[in-house]
Amino acid sequence: MTGIQVDPRDRRPIYEQLIANIRDLVLRGTLGPDEQMPSVRALAAELAINPNTIQKAYAELERQGVIYSSPGRGSFVCPDPTAMRRAEQAKRLAALWEDLREAHRFGFSRAEVEEILDEIWRDEHDPN
């Protein structure tokens, strides 16, 4: 098992789901730097989806720099996901600003927002 999944109830095309899922696994470090990706054939059989779809998703991930391929050896996770992670963080940060401004506009108090922050950071230190 690779941890790579597609959800048949998800409305997005399978190849978009694959790209998002693999990006996520790389960002979280579940797929580590230079780790070998499952072959197209193995993943097709595991997920029972079209090998051409997987090939297409791998090609797009390679274009995005998430994975690289080595002729005759297969595909591997990029050696250094730092830049990728930084870009993702910048994107999330911009979204956070946007949402907080919206929350502010809709009359949320600073205390209410702080309560959320406290809860999230508490969960991080004590998952129970």
Binding site: A44, A48, P51
Partner: peptide, 14 residues
């Protein structure tokens, strides 16, 4: 059905 699908994609990939 799931087994048939897996065998089908495997024949295509292999």
């Amino acid at each position: 059905r799931q087994l048939f699908k897996r065998l089908l994609v495997d024949a295509v990939a292999e």
